[in-house]
Design a protein around this nucleic acid. Structure first.
Length: 693
DNA sequence: GGAATGTCAGCAGA
DNA sequence: CTCTGCTGACATTC
């Protein structure tokens, strides 16, 4: 049976619903309640008891044709499509004329649809209605069932926390179709922060699942747990997925064009795309008040041979008709996602486009980049490369959006390999570190004649006073000749667990991290040596109109990855007094906001979670002079919503008074996006502001 | 030896 | 309940 209801039964509202205004609390935690007013444009046509018939075309004629059309397209054995069992799929000339005739019929019917709906379609775009019960964010769930007296790192409890209640009541997705508009600056910051914290939690859980599994089986033994799936399941169980109570058309609050994701599940968790495998996300027909499915987002990731992607315009192949190996083996049908895209085209509803592609050294898996909103311009039935019928959709990127993330990534890739031919003007040097770092650091200015960073000596690591290294009394290390293992001496120094996973990703922020060092027997490849290896990502110091000098990466930086040290010459309190009188600019590390505490914060999963206080260090009581020697870090801009955190690390000495200040990514940072640190209290000595301006 | 292909467990949504 | 879907990790092959 056809997937569309006859058109006189469509529950489309004859008039837009009346506007109303309500305050919607979008605060994530009850303790920090901030009421915000957010406007939702409701796109779901409301069911009205009485339906006015359409004016044109005449109902009888249209219904008749529509039914024919639907039966012929959506039946399992459509009569206009050659049966692959009996008819050779390719070059089937005998049926080509039939197909052509049916295509024409399809277009003719489509045009009738279009004109019939035209008036009502126009109304959808600018309706402003607020629902008193609406919330853009799922409420904070009840406290979980965990017993509060045990520690989260206790094995059995952890297992329980990470397990998912099998008989859980599934909280389905909402059927309310809305478009979020009128977000003020505060709202944007709020949602951005919410998304960031949600993603941080997802990532922390994901690596926790994997590292727990490796603890049990040992590294490299057995198949690794699907941390991506488990983390999502745990969060879904606790209702921590975002945007489940709304089907959002258009942009998702808090998600920017160019944001990068490593897992399909992560897209579900933030509500960008709600299907874990399917490429077309829809409000299904059964939940739509018009009885028609509506598409809200698509993923284009090269899985269909008939796709043509040229960036701003896409020819997207519908779903279905493939065997389990991804080969087209039968004709596609106008149902499910395909019908939804066609309906979205009719209603002028834009779709989010996410591109998935293999990137760099990621062996398996892809990266997914949110590339913004597209309009569906056209839809037709075509014979694909394998000779089977496929639905094709022509999409065009809506104007006025920031540049596509995927094209920025391509641009950054060519900058890495051939910077001068990609961008002939503006480079002041192709390595400001003069080969002192493992990878070159570009200096780029296409704005003015400022060459300032050229005039400083490049400092790779912080310089400490000689007496910091002590007399060797603190020189203790492990005996792990083949690399550190669970429970070794250095693990115990860090409170029993290593701070990094096997890929060098920071698992959980701590007051200080003891990496293995000169006094350890382990090799340089030890998992407990990360920040000491220095820069890995190719950075670029660039001139910006907004922030003076800034820093960005040409590589994609994974959340939790080490970036670089905040280097300078350490001055004791007494020395700092003298330098200050000379008018030199100093960094006071104790003013950095303690963002490390947010990293790996699982208090919403483990109620008994407390911020790590061990290993503890005394308050930082030194200053750093960067007025003569510095590295890239001191060009990083300030932000109260930063993407980089400062983590204290010790490795070449054990003096707790003088740790290295190491910078780690707080989120996946796409190439060419500016790095930022929370420099803390804005006063006369606040970091970069006083240095570079 | 790196890219391509195969296999297998996995799970949410419809 | 069953089925489908532009996964992701790893083993194997080319």
């Amino acid at each position: 049976m056809g997937s569309l209801v006859p058109f006189q039964d469509l529950n489309l509202c004859p008039e837009p619903p009346l506007p109303a205004t309500v305050n919607i609390s979008t605060s994530a935690t009850p303790s920090a309640t901030i009421n915000r007013t957010t406007t939702f444009n409701f796109l779901t046509p409301k069911i009205e008891p009485k339906q006015e018939p359409f004016d044109e075309p005449t109902p009888t004629q249209t219904i008749h044709q529509q039914e024919n059309f639907l039966f012929s397209v959506s039946n399992s054995t459509p009569d206009f499509i050659p049966n692959p069992e009996t008819t050779p799929p390719a070059n089937a000339s005998s049926s080509a004329d039939d197909q052509n005739a049916l295509y024409s019929e399809y277009f003719r019917i489509s045009e009738l649809f279009r004109s019939a709906f035209a008036k009502r379609i126009q109304k959808y775009g600018d309706v402003e209605v607020l629902d008193p019960d609406s919330r853009a964010i799922v409420p904070v769930p009840e406290q979980s069932q965990l017993t509060p007296e045990t520690s989260p790192t206790d094995g059995s409890n952890l297992e329980r926390a990470l397990s998912v209640v099998v008989s859980r009541k599934k909280a389905g997705r909402s059927n309310e179709l809305v478009r979020v508009t009128n977000l003020g600056i505060d709202d944007q910051r709020h949602f951005r922060d919410l998304v960031r914290r949600t993603r941080m939690m997802y990532d922390s859980l994901r690596v926790l699942v994997i590292s727990e599994e490796e603890k049990r089986t040992g590294p490299g033994n057995g198949r690794r747990a699907r941390g991506d799936l488990r983390a999502a399941a745990v969060m879904r169980d606790r209702e921590l997925w975002l945007n489940r109570d709304k089907r959002i058309v258009g942009a998702i609050p808090g998600i920017e064009i160019g944001d990068v994701f490593f897992f399909r599940m992560e897209l579900c968790v933030v509500g960008l795309h709600g299907q874990i495998q399917a490429g077309i996300d829809t409000l299904p027909a059964s939940q739509s008040s018009s009885g028609e499915p509506i598409a809200t987002s698509i993923i284009i990731s090269g899985g269909y041979e008939d796709d043509e992607d040229s960036g701003d315009s896409i020819i997207y192949t519908g779903q279905g008709g493939q065997d389990k190996f991804g080969k087209q083996c039968m004709h596609q049908k106008l149902e499910g996602g395909n019908l939804a895209l066609e309906r979205s085209m009719h209603y002028g509803i834009e779709v989010r486009v996410i591109r998935g592609f293999k990137y760099e050294n990621r062996v398996s898996g892809k990266v997914y980049v949110y590339d913004g909103l597209y309009k569906i311009l056209d839809c037709w039935f075509d014979v694909g490369k394998s000779g089977f019928g496929v639905y094709k959709f022509r999409l065009s990127r809506i104007e006025g959006q920031p540049e596509m993330g995927s094209s920025i990534m391509k641009f950054a890739e060519s900058l890495r390999t051939k910077p001068l031919s990609t961008r002939p003007m503006g480079y002041l040097t192709l390595d400001i570190s003069m080969k002192k770092e493992r990878v070159p650091i570009f200096l780029y200015n296409d704005i003015d004649n400022d060459h300032d960073p050229m005039y400083y000596d490049y400092l790779v690591n912080t310089v400490f006073p000689l007496n910091v290294f002590g007399q060797g009394s603190n020189s203790t290390g492990c005996d792990c000749v083949s690399g550190c293992t669970e429970g070794c001496f250095c693990a115990m120094k860090n409170g029993g667990d290593f701070a990094y996973d096997y890929g060098g990703i920071l698992l959980r922020g701590k007051p200080v991290i003891f990496e293995c060092g000169n006094f350890c027997q382990c090799p340089p490849s030890c998992r407990n040596r990360v920040a000491q290896h220095g820069l890995r990502n190719r950075l670029e110091i660039f001139r910006s109109r907004e922030t003076g000098w800034g820093v960005r990466s040409l590589d994609l930086i994974q959340a939790g990855a080490f970036i670089c040290e905040y280097a300078g010459v350490v001055l004791t309190r007494d020395q700092a007094e003298v330098f200050k009188m000379n008018g030199d600019t100093l960094i006071y590390p104790n003013r950095f906001s303690e963002r490390w505490a947010e990293w790996g914060d699982l208090s919403r999963i483990f109620p008994e979670y407390v911020c790590p206080s061990y290993p503890s260090i005394p308050p930082l009581d030194f200053a750093m002079d960067v007025s003569r020697m510095r590295n890239a870090a001191c060009y990083i801009s300030h932000s109260s919503s930063p993407n980089v955190l400062v983590q204290c690390v010790l490795y070449d000495h054990n003096n707790l008074m003088f740790p290295h200040l190491m910078l780690f990514a707080m989120e996946n940072i796409p190439p060419m996006r500016e790095l930022s640190i929370d420099y803390g209290v804005a006063d006369e000595w606040t970091g970069k502001l006083s240095i570079c301006n």
